[in-house]
Amino acid sequence: MDTKTEKLSLKRQVGLKGAVSLIGGTMIGSGIFMSPQTVLHTIGSPGASLLVWASCGLLVIMASFCYAELGTVIRESGGEYIYILRTSGPVVAFMLIFSSVLFVRPAGVAGISLSFAQYVVAPFYPDCAPPVALVKCVAAVAIVTLATVNCLNVRFAMSVQVFFMVAKVLALAVIIVGGLVMLARGNTENFQDSFVNTNLGVNSIGIAFYQGLWSYDGWNNLNYVTEELKRPEVSNRPRGP
């Protein structure tokens, strides 16, 4: 009798465009549009705020390099869960996934969805704050809709991801170009004595870094779908003969 058992395998349908959009689309989320004001208010000065953003970006880049190496060595989906499982054993991995599934991920999704809902309903309430119940309902509908899209088809989910990434990049481009235009017109008063009133307290710096890193969150999402990537061990860019 044939006693071989077939191993469940995922279809490799995510290419370079889908992989880039998965990282970019999740990193460019509600946080980048809401965190800057909190970082500036907490740290107290524009100069220190820019240093916080640069430091957070450097930390994320270094961590991304580590994850890129791990993703090519351990070609299994699951992200940090599979890495901890292979290095520290099932007990520590179970503790990680237990806390992540029940607390960390739901809290993050709820925060992002509520932020999205605030922006969606704000134009309909120009003179007052929108009803809390309406914001929560819109956030719930967004979560259910995206969950359904991801369950239906990988390629369709990647197409949706690409569309929203392009939309968010265009929104950021409008903000960046607008800022450059203001600088070109001589509105540089915020860069004069830019470190005045900087809050050097541990709490202020910690909260500012937390908000900055939250805005960069999503850089590790590609490693959760390693088994769905087309040839994750090599670059997808065109190669010569």
Rank of each mutant, 00 (worst) to 15 (best):
F191T: 08
V52Y: 04
Y119R: 00
M165T: 15
I175L: 15
V120G: 01
E189D: 11
G15D: 03
V91T: 14
R185T: 07
A142Q: 10
F209N: 02
F163R: 06
L170E: 07
N236S: 15
S30D: 02
E76Q: 11
T226K: 01
V20Y: 14
M158Q: 13
A117T: 04
N221D: 14
K136F: 08
A129D: 13
I205F: 13
E80F: 03
G47D: 04
I176T: 11
L229K: 02
I84Q: 08
L59D: 02
N223G: 05
L102G: 12
S21G: 02
V166C: 12
M34L: 11
A110V: 10
V181A: 01
G47H: 03
S30M: 10
S88W: 14
F195P: 11
R237E: 11
N190H: 12
G15M: 02
T188N: 12
G89A: 00
L222R: 08
E233N: 09
Q211F: 15
L134W: 05
I28N: 03
V39F: 04
G178H: 13
G111L: 12
Y216E: 08
N150K: 03
L51R: 06
V73K: 14
F191P: 12
N203D: 11
E76P: 02
V60K: 08
V120M: 09
G47Y: 00
S77L: 11
G111Y: 05
S115P: 00
L85G: 04
V154W: 00
L213M: 13
G79D: 05
T188C: 13
F195R: 10
S49P: 12
A122Q: 14
V202Y: 14
V144C: 03
E233I: 05
T38K: 15
E76R: 14
A63V: 13
D127P: 04
S30W: 02
Y119D: 05
S204M: 06
T198M: 12
V138G: 01
S21F: 10
E76F: 01
G186C: 08
K4A: 13
L172I: 13
L134A: 03
F163C: 15
V39C: 10
A19E: 09
A184Q: 13
R12W: 03
Q211K: 12
S55G: 05
C56Q: 05
T3K: 15
S21L: 03
T145F: 15
G111W: 00
S235K: 08
R155G: 09
I207N: 02
G57H: 02
P126K: 07
P36Q: 09
N187W: 12
S159F: 07
V52E: 12
C56S: 07
L170T: 11
Y125Q: 01
R237S: 09
G218M: 11
T226W: 11
E69C: 07
V202I: 09
A171Q: 09
F33G: 06
